[in-house]
Write a protein that binds this DNA or RNA. Structure first.
Lengths: 237, 237
DNA sequence: GACACTCTTTGCGCTGGGACAAACAAATGG
DNA sequence: CCATTTGTTTGTCCCAGCGCAAAGAGTGTC
């Protein structure tokens, strides 16, 4: 499936013109290249797959790639367009899933490892702190990614459902019958989270209330039928 | 404007129960706390402001905060809800603007510096590489943030305009008269970037073409009146 | 208890843009 | 050169959800 042809000898000139490396000394570039390998992709081919195990970053030297997410309903959303000179495939390193990427044009990348010596020393010495820090960034990125996909493909009702579930999950609690958002939240707030209006949110909650799915009041929302809500949130539009 | 009351003596017990720190030795926690200061915020107050110069991260120990973006038209979009145990205010450190945050409930945070010694050594030694790496992550986060805001507040036409401009800017080229997207792009692609449909994209481009703003063909789009496009993209809903 | 706020609900009309359908046009390939 | 595939345009219909407007319902304060 991977259609790249690894190249054997990597020349320093590959990197000297790419901004992130241009300031480095030759010695440092060599150190990086010793652990790197270069790949070429032709237009339209797969750069990497969903969830692929990446112990490395990729730096795009030439061309464009796009990262794509596919909804449960089969719709595509282009999550990112990455031009040359940027890193990609970093999600895994931040503790999260990577999504499939394809080459928009013929492209060339190199796979890099971090300059390892100091990095490992750093992570080891401050063990929990460093890795948890990265996890935070990873969570943040993953969450934004999800919101983009939702906004692109889902109806307002589903987005509201997702938002409620997210607010509960975020606190680390289980979504259970009778669970309440544990801080005051207004219809206005919810609308600002979902990209809707307070009127529409109000109507939606009213409808849910009639079906017994939630119970809500002023600045307060309690989920009565979490399972129903999950079904609704995951319905394929 | 900042309404926090700094606390003087920081006790280790503050951190020992917070996941990212729980694995650390007392020695390490002390080292972190020596450079940290704690702050309390009451409900609804400002945690930090737009563009505030943050040489530190903040770790939320208790409560909830939200990060808010305000559109040129004055609409609010809730960009993030942050529960306790997570870092916030990291955007600046990743090389990008921070957005204002307020406390949703009474909240407590501590301001941290990175464990500095090794970190500085790391960044210094690999100068360009490390900082540019962070820039990549920062750019990615900022871009996603923008897309969320756009999806929440803008009409399809504006989002298409923004997407085109982004594709051009991303390549590092100036947006100029007659500039062309330098790789083949279909209506379908554009629709997947903007969360629309290929039909709507086609109609929109047709309309623009009639006004002389763009010239487009099969898998090709050229911007004729970049200024018009910018105006359109920035129009307040 | 009365007044002022703030938050929520509901009705109604209107429209952006999605769904469906059907040509049309440009590439590709035998 | 004709056939097929891939991408684009356009028409028609229709509805989710926004905007506007106005009336409840809680909360806080004097």
């Amino acid at each position: 499936m991977r259609n790249a042809r690894p190249q054997s000898r990597l020349d320093e000139s590959l990197l000297t013109n790419v901004p992130p490396f241009s300031k480095l000394e030759t010695r440092q570039i060599r150190e990086i290249l010793d652990l790197a390998s270069s790949r070429r992709y032709s237009e339209g081919t797969t750069v990497f797959q969903e969830g692929e195990d990446a112990d490395r970053f990729f730096m795009l030297l030439d061309g464009y790639i796009r990262v794509v997410r596919i909804t449960p309903g089969g719709e595509q959303v282009i999550a990112l367009h990455i031009p040359s000179g940027q890193l990609f495939g970093i999600a895994k390193a931040l503790g999260h899933t990577t999504y499939p990427a394809t080459a928009v044009t013929a492209a060339e990348s190199i796979a890099l490892s971090w300059p390892t010596r100091l990095w490992e020393q750093f992570v080891t010495e401050y063990d929990g702190f460093a890795s948890e820090t990265y996890k935070t960034v990873g969570i943040r990125v993953a969450e934004m990614n999800n919101r983009i996909m939702e906004m692109a493909t889902q109806q307002v009702e589903q987005r509201i459902a997702k938002s409620l579930l997210r607010l509960i999950n975020q606190t680390g609690r289980k979504v259970a019958t009778g669970i309440e958002i544990d801080f005051p939240i207004t219809r206005q707030d919810l609308s600002e989270m979902t990209g809707s209006t307070l009127h529409t949110v109000s109507r939606t909650l009213s409808a849910w209330e009639k079906q017994g799915m939630v119970s809500s009041g002023r600045k307060r929302i309690t989920v009565c039928e979490p399972h129903e809500l999950v079904l609704l949130a995951e319905a394929t539009g």
